[in-house]
Design a protein around this nucleic acid. Sequence first.
DNA 1: AAGCGTTATGTTTTTACGCACATATCGGTT
DNA 2: AACCGATATGTGCGTAAAAACATAACGCTT
Lengths: 120, 120
Amino acid sequence: MKIDGALMGKEIKFKIWIEEEEEKFYGPGPNQLLKEIQNEGSLSKAAGKMNLSYKKAWEMVQRLNHHSEKPLVILKKGGQHGGGAEVTPHALKIIEDYDILQKKMKELVEQQHEFLKVLN
Amino acid sequence: MKIDGALMGKEIKFKIWIEEEEEKFYGPGPNQLLKEIQNEGSLSKAAGKMNLSYKKAWEMVQRLNHHSEKPLVILKKGGQHGGGAEVTPHALKIIEDYDILQKKMKELVEQQHEFLKVLN
DNA sequence: AAGCGTTATGTTTTTACGCACATATCGGTT
DNA sequence: AACCGATATGTGCGTAAAAACATAACGCTT
């Protein structure tokens, strides 16, 4: 059986994000960053895993914390291992919710994808 | 009754597009452009309505036609009115399908938006 | 107090992109 | 054949985004 979507190489893609006062602060990037921070316990290592400059990662964290009542990431400098980063329980909740919405969107798109046939 | 989404100014936004071989060719911009072309019968006027340069609009049309088996826009140069632009029935079908998907996505997001509460 | 690894921040360089501008082309009308 | 309005296409400039580079600050350990 032929699957149109794959054969013709056309894909429906989408992106979800959260913004406040015209500023985007949560999306695919920050979502992944939070997960990496959770794994690594370090912002610089998390950035490295994502092929992201430390600076951009740091700015992401600032935006995240700025737009949330309670901090999502806690950064510590100095100390035994030079410092570190950890995510709060609030962050875990947001990651989960974002992933759920992402999944539902994906299902919706896949249901609907036969409209690409018009392009043939 | 308080509506969290409005009060805290945080919004969930999304975008859908179609791409082929890493190249985006259909999204909110082209979708609106097709509608404007249908109204105006002219690519330059359609571009004007969108505050878009003629060049960018023309490139959009090239991409649209390039990635579709059958043309979505027919451009004519010269003649009584200097030329003109019109959309094909295929374009109308795509516009419709895109708008439907857009609407369903919007509904899904609105259902799900209570997850913003975590940010308070 | 010296060392270490990480966070924190500034400066410079490069790249990408939009945008204005200029000009050519076409074909029906007059 | 001159005119007109729209399509067709190239070029240079300015700005903004991204990347690269440099350096400071911190606090525990030894």
